[in-house]
């Protein structure tokens, strides 16, 4: 009795032979399928082989796999309008072009992800951080800490966020804007949440200077009402994701 793995592998080889001979005429199809069927039968019933069943199945599988390029080339050579032996590189080029073209068609036909609906902003905290720079000296700037969660059923592309801080006495003053890459080229998988990001009107990390914070704490009553708008850039398009008030409190990171 022929053991299971060997029988399955032989069936797979017969299936592959049936597939690659499909474009050929009936005579060529029959000849190649019958020849492979004979080869498989001889292999399965060869009593001179001293191998375990699994090893035989593995050998048969490898033997079939290694022959796949020649199977395809042979098939091309049998086609009636085939002028001369097809060069392997020409076949490889055609396969690569077809794969690339089909990839482009699939991505072009795919509807764009509606990030306004499918990307959730999780604001962890807002407030003010103390920074000290040579140019401006000690100051406090608005900041926001957040993550992004992908609620869609497919992955996003790269995601960049622009945080625009505004407000002040006239409610239109711009404190500043900070641009940051939140998710790289691999995108954000469905259901995944990005790393936590802290952005301030002074840049991504806003220097955490405890001394400055203490000196400026007394000023918090003068902190004007400020808000932050978070825009996300996905596949070249900017979308407003969230708008949040900045709490009038000093943030400690």
């Amino acid at each position: 009795m022929i053991p299971g793995p060997l029988l399955l592998t032989a069936a797979a080889v017969r299936g592959w032979t049936w597939l690659y001979t499909l474009p050929l005429d009936a005579a060529a199809q029959h000849a190649r399928r019958a020849e492979i069927a004979s080869d498989l039968w001889e292999f399965q019933h060869d009593r001179t082989r001293d191998e375990s069943d699994l090893r035989s199945a593995l050998q048969l599988f490898i033997r079939a796999m290694l022959g796949v390029p020649d199977d395809l080339l042979w098939c091309c050579e049998q086609l009636p309008d085939h002028p001369r032996a097809i060069r392997p590189f020409a076949v490889i080029k055609v396969v690569v072009l077809i794969t690339a073209a089909s990839g482009l068609v699939v991505s072009a036909n795919r509807p764009a992800l509606d990030v306004a609906r499918t990307l959730q902003v999780n604001v962890a905290s807002t407030g003010w951080v103390a920074v000290s720079t040579k140019r401006t000296g000690d100051e406090i700037v608005p900041a926001v800490a957040f993550t992004l969660t992908n609620l869609a059923d497919r992955a996003t592309s790269a995601l960049q966020v622009n945080a625009l801080f505004y407000g002040g006495p006239t409610n239109h003053d711009e404190w500043g804007a900070t641009f940051i890459s939140v998710v790289g080229g691999r995108g954000l998988a469905p259901g995944a949440t990005s790393r936590s990001v802290v952005v301030s009107a002074h840049g991504v990390n806003g220097r955490d200077d405890a001394g400055v914070a203490r000196r400026l704490a007394i000023l918090h009553i003068m902190i004007p009402e400020t808000r932050v708008k978070l825009f996300v850039r996905h596949e070249g398009r900017w979308t407003l994701l969230a708008e949040d008030p900045i709490r009038p409190a000093l943030l400690r990171r």
């Binding site: 290694l66 022959g67 796949v68």
Partner: peptide, 23 residues
Amino acid sequence: ELAKTLGRGAGARLLTAHGTLYR
């Protein structure tokens, strides 16, 4: 039979691949 003869001659453990041999 040919694949086995070739394998014995070359001392190879694997028989010549189907596609390669029949092509």
